[in-house]
Each structure stands twice: as C-alpha cells, then as structure tokens.
Design a protein around this nucleic acid. Sequence first.
DNA 1: ATTTTTCGTGCAACAATGTTGCAAATTTAA
DNA 2: TTAAATTTGCAACATTGTTGCACGAAAAAT
Lengths: 135, 135
Amino acid sequence: MDTVDESLKQHGLRLTPARRQIVEILMNHAYALSQHEIEQKLTLEADRVTVYRTLLTLIEVGLVTKILDERGQRFLLCRGEKKAENAHFKCTDCGHIEAIENSIVLPVALPQGYVLQNHNVLITGTCAVCNENKP
Amino acid sequence: MDTVDESLKQHGLRLTPARRQIVEILMNHAYALSQHEIEQKLTLEADRVTVYRTLLTLIEVGLVTKILDERGQRFLLCRGEKKAENAHFKCTDCGHIEAIENSIVLPVALPQGYVLQNHNVLITGTCAVCNENKP
DNA sequence: ATTTTTCGTGCAACAATGTTGCAAATTTAA
DNA sequence: TTAAATTTGCAACATTGTTGCACGAAAAAT
C-alpha cells in the first residue's frame, strides 16, 4: 500500500481511481493547483464535477487546503502543518503558490472586542527560483 | 463640489452618474461589498458591465481595494492607508470584511532567496458588534 | 464468493461571475 | 456649441461554482 492509499485510508475515504490520482498529482506538486490544472494532469477520464467533489472531500478531511488568488481557488496538499494557520506565498513571476513553512504571522493590532479565528495570508513577491534566473 | 466629486477629480476621472453613485455607496460602508451588493444599492439604472468596469477603474487609480474571500471579490474604499499593505478582517458571523487600521503583518520567516512585494491578508474571526450581541 | 449496503461518479442543467467588442451616448475641452 | 475623448449599454461568450438524480463501484456482511 503506497503513500496515497495510506493517506486516503487514514482519513476514512474509499480508494477510488479518481481520488488516488488526484491525491497523487497534488503530492507531486509543491505549489497550489487550480481545479482546471488538476483536470489536465489526469490521465484517467474524470468528470469536472467529480474533481470538484473530490477536492471538497479532501479539504473536508484535512488532506488539502484551499487558497484564494485573483483567479479563483487553488489547492495544495497539507504536509503536516496546520493548514489554516499558515501563510502562503505567491510568486508574481511564475505564478506558483506554496505554503511558507514555519511562518508566523502577527496581526499586531486587532481592534478592541474582536476575536481571532484564523489567518488566510497570501504574500506576493518573487520566489528563489525566479530570482536566480535574473540579471 | 462634494467629497465624492473631489475624489474622482483628484484621480483624473470624469464625473459620471454611475461613478458618483458607486463611490458614494462605497463611502457609506466601512466594510467590503461585492459587485452584486453594489448593484442592488444603486438607485440609478446601471449595467452590470458598467459597474464592473467602474470598479476596475477605481482600483486602477487607487481609490478602491479588491479583497478576496471564498465567494469572490469584494470592494472597499481606500481610506488613506496604503491599500495592499493592510490586513483585512472578515467576521464569520455577519460576513463583513473591513480594513484593520494600523495593522502590521509580519511574516517572520520568508525562505532564503525570496523577495516580498506585498501582503494580502484576510483574518477571520468575530467582530466587536457580533460579540456584543451574544451570551 | 456473493449479496447487500454505502458511497462515489457522470450527466444534465443551471447560477454566478468575469470578460470582450462595438456602437451609441455622455462628458470635457476647445 | 462643436469636436474629441471617454464612458456606457448591449449582446455575447467563457469560466467557475453548484445541485439533483440515477447508475456504478467499493466495502461490509453473509
């Protein structure tokens, strides 16, 4: 039983071809993918709706995080870190969105009477790879 | 000449009924509105596309910020603060999104070789008003 | 191994949102 | 007041998000 199947089982999900392949694709990417990108990487035939619902399920069980950018939602495999607490980084050059490990985000002054639940932080800039390939 | 007109003029925009009313609506709200909400608040007849393009223009000249939540884009008048640098707060009770004044957000550990451009921070929780109306 | 139960998938259909080109109307400057 | 520049409305289309329902597949029970 490989890692993909273990992950699915551990979260009480049935092993289906669609789930297996979608999780595998997400495992092979360090950055967040749109649903459309995931669909294009699938070798098996899978309905748009199936991908949609599979992603919903994976988020529900905590295997995947959803990140928002200007063009909609993107999906990233959770790799141990607490999903919502983490900041994400979007490179304006290559467009990739990835989790920033060990990031701590501090909103210094939340107004009186406000209660915090969690962060949803997207930091934009340029990533190491893109910066290397420059003058 | 009222505040609305001044704002538009200052940013080199023509004074049209649609712009006037859209800016006025945004001025009267401390929280971020969706395009749809703005359309509903308009008394004059304006095409969906006009509202869409007006908002694009207002963002372009820096009068308005765009904020992303699960349900799409929301729009908030910029009130002096540097728009992109600021964090925003979304109340999970009433759903309102507002700018957090004077917020300073610190991503403590951005990986080696990464260059920061700006933040896009949405903090969720419950706001003062909603917390008051509770047990 | 076969049946039963539970769950996942595909299809159809629809709503909401984002986006463009173009002609007509409106604003501003001359 | 007219001319130039910009804005608007309309039509049309693309993309994304979402639901219900019937059929098929996976897991559990026999």
